[in-house]
Design a protein around this nucleic acid. Structure first.
Length: 652
DNA sequence: GAGTTTGAAACT
DNA sequence: CAGTTTCAAACTC
């Protein structure tokens, strides 16, 4: 097999390889490509290496009929090889992978075209715009500048040439690279993205999934550990689709995480972040879970998580992530039997993962948890006449927009996390132990805020002034200001008053939460908030003064927050995430573009869209701001434009 | 699994 | 903005 590099060299310069390296042209080429020269050299073996074949697939989704969506990733995804599209050999499940693998092979053979095809995949990701990567999936892609390649045919000649050159150069570097590096990059993205990235990643997956859900279903039986496959699996495993509310153009945001988040998460809670971060860590423990759900993870291995939460943990993340690559396959397998999963979720605590059962809302209203969370409904959902699917993307977006017009914060995370430090501020929040508060507060009349009917309780947060509940006995903190101290006592009360079985459940949750709180309380919480926003954030989407973003950051990301925060377990995960962020900031300081402006924070208070009350931000702001400063060690965090949550509306 | 309860979301 | 209806999750049996 020839190495792609040859091709590259050919493209770039017809010179022989030895000359090639020395030649000024080579230098020039190097300068062109953002990526480190690396491997222009090594080729042959790298190429031959198994690693090589598969990995690219990670970012490429050859078969996609809806290539445009992925265009971001595959800038130059010109011609789809028929082969790509359908690899007769492979089972449907593996089609993608196999196709990709073949593509790579072809690339190695040396066709420019084929190479280009492959390259694109890598390019965006590795090199230039990590942002693109993050952007991902569903967003109606703005034609990426570089991506003109999407429709290679349509490209202008000049543009094409440039693109080619660029691609070629990049290719040379990227292609050759061993997968390890590639994967590591990818993992890094995940890491960085944290919430956002993960979301983005997920979105990526989702795209795939959405475009070919049917395939996915069929897929997995094969459990090849081929790198490519693993990657693809990863995506698939994560595959739950996020609604991409992000608007094209998000690229503005500098930070990877931001962009990414915006894209996917849009859905707030974006699950995403969590998903990956957690997943990376937790997946190991809970392979069976379909999605990376914080809650599930916890449940599955609560103890493990706790342990993992330790600061040291995140250090292992990279490794974990690699593992993730492998793990997904398992998940994938599981996916094949949705019922199983569902059953599992039901029985267990799969709640974290959205799976709706809508019958009349068509999953286009906030009644639908999936929709509310900013994710598309998937197979496991039992909804009827569901419109919350990629196929109806337009409808979904339109509906979302409509809802947002009515209530800008409709898709904002319901639970706003504030830093623990809040207590210091003396705000009402201080009364309650929980660092987080429900955005609007609950309105419980009969549940005493002791059941999941109560959104506060469900979100694992205490009731606050904002709540209009009656007879509040929220174990996480009463409206009247009972503190964490009381919680245990409350639990006891609960036991007495509430039904045994039910109580037991509740109590468990509560206990878990308490433990988490105890553990987490020591740790600074804030940083997360910043990132949370990102998932959905899109410069465009940003609300003027992003109230949400300020809010807790946590608030903004639809999927992320909702899914994540909703989990009572949130706390456990959070520390971890924070750390990851922290790490990011430390290591790649540049990566964090966001600026946390206090001003925005101030706005938070005012922002109660529906006139419904929003948790008092100031506490958040003050605390968060201070914390941020602290955490970052004086680094300035800029809240550039943090889209608080994934809003469809371009701008308000 | 069916039915009931509950409170958020949507509507008026 | 308040009251009512609709809805789907949470819960119970």
């Amino acid at each position: 097999m020839d190495t792609p590099q040859k091709n590259i060299s050919q493209i770039g310069t017809p010179i022989s390889k030895s000359k090639f390296e020395d030649s000024p042209v080579f230098n020039y080429i190097n300068s062109l490509s953002p990526i480190r020269p690396v491997k222009s050299i090594p080729n042959p073996h790298q190429f031959t290496s198994l690693n090589f074949t598969s990995p690219p697939s990670v970012f490429t989704s050859p078969h996609q009929s809806s290539s445009h969506r992925e265009s971001r990733f595959f800038k130059t995804h010109n011609s789809s090889n028929p082969v790509e599209e359908e690899s007769p050999d492979e089972s449907t499940s593996n089609e993608d992978v196999s196709a990709e693998a073949e593509d790579t092979k072809e690339a190695s053979i040396g066709e420019e075209t084929s190479i280009e095809t492959e390259l694109p995949t890598n390019d965006p990701v590795v090199g230039e715009d990590s942002t693109d990567l993050s952007l991902v999936p569903y967003a109606p892609l703005p034609p990426p500048p570089s991506s003109g390649g999407e429709n290679g045919s349509s490209e202008d000649a000049a543009g094409t040439e440039l693109q080619k050159m660029y691609d070629d150069n990049v290719q040379g570097k990227i292609e050759t690279p061993d997968w390890e590096s590639l994967i590591s990059d990818a993992s890094e993205l995940l890491i960085f993205g944290s919430p956002n990235d993960s979301e983005a990643f997920r979105c990526l997956m989702m795209q795939k999934a959405s475009t070919s859900e049917a395939r996915l279903r069929n897929e997995p039986e094969s459990s090849d550990t081929n790198p490519c496959e693993t990657v693809s699996f990863l995506h698939r495993g994560i595959r739950r689709r996020c609604l991409d509310f992000e608007l094209p153009g998000n690229k503005q945001t500098l930070s990877l995480s931001q962009n990414n988040n915006a894209a996917c998460v849009v859905p707030s809670i974006g699950l995403h972040l969590n998903a990956i971060l957690l997943s990376s860590m937790d997946i190991k423990t809970n392979v069976s879970d379909d999605y990376f759900c914080p809650g599930e993870i916890q449940v599955g291995s609560s103890s493990t998580l706790k342990e993992t939460l330790n600061q040291t943990e995140y250090e292992t993340r990279e490794d974990a992530e690699q593992d993730v690559l492998v793990e997904p396959a398992l998940e994938e397998l599981n996916l094949s039997s949705p019922k199983k999963k569902r059953a599992k979720l039901e029985s267990g605590e799969g709640e974290s993962c959205k799976r709706c059962n809508c019958k009349k809302s068509k999953c286009l209203k906030l009644y639908c948890e999936c929709f509310a969370a900013g994710v598309y409904c998937i197979e496991p959902c039992s909804c009827i006449d569901c419109f919350n699917k990629p196929i109806h993307e337009d409808t979904v977006l339109a509906t979302r927009k409509q809802i947002e017009s009515r209530n800008p914060l409709a898709f904002a995370p319901k639970v706003i996390r504030s830093s623990d430090s809040v207590q210091e501020t003396g705000d009402d929040a201080s009364k309650t132990p929980a660092s987080a508060r429900h955005k609007r507060g609950c309105n419980c009349k009969k549940s005493n805020c002791l059941k999941k009917y109560c959104e506060c309780f469900q979100g694992g947060v205490g009731c606050s002034i904002n709540c209009r509940c009656e007879g509040c006995k929220n174990a996480f903190g009463r409206k009247d200001g009972s503190s964490t101290v009381d919680m245990e006592a409350e639990q006891e009360e609960e036991n007495e008053t509430s039904d045994k079985s039910r109580t037991a459940k509740t109590q468990q949750n509560t206990e878990v939460l308490l433990r988490k709180k105890e553990t987490s309380s020591a740790q600074p919480l804030t940083p997360m908030s910043i990132y949370r926003q990102e998932p959905f954030s899109t410069a465009k989407n940003m609300m003027p003064p992003p109230p949400q973003s300020l809010i807790g950051g946590g608030s903004s990301s639809g999927m992320f927050n909702s899914q994540y925060l909703r989990e009572q377990d949130i706390r456990l995960t959070q520390p971890r995430i924070e750390k990851s962020f922290e790490r990011i900031t430390e290591e790649g300081g540049e990566e964090m573009p966001e600026i946390l402006s206090h001003s925005s924070i101030d706005n938070i208070n005012s922002v109660s869209p529906n006139s419904k009350r929003v948790s008092s931000p100031h506490m958040d702001s003050s605390s968060s701001g201070s914390i941020l400063g602290r955490r970052n060690g004086g680094r300035k965090l800029i809240l550039h434009s943090i889209p608080s949550f994934p809003s469809l509306t371009p701008q308000h």
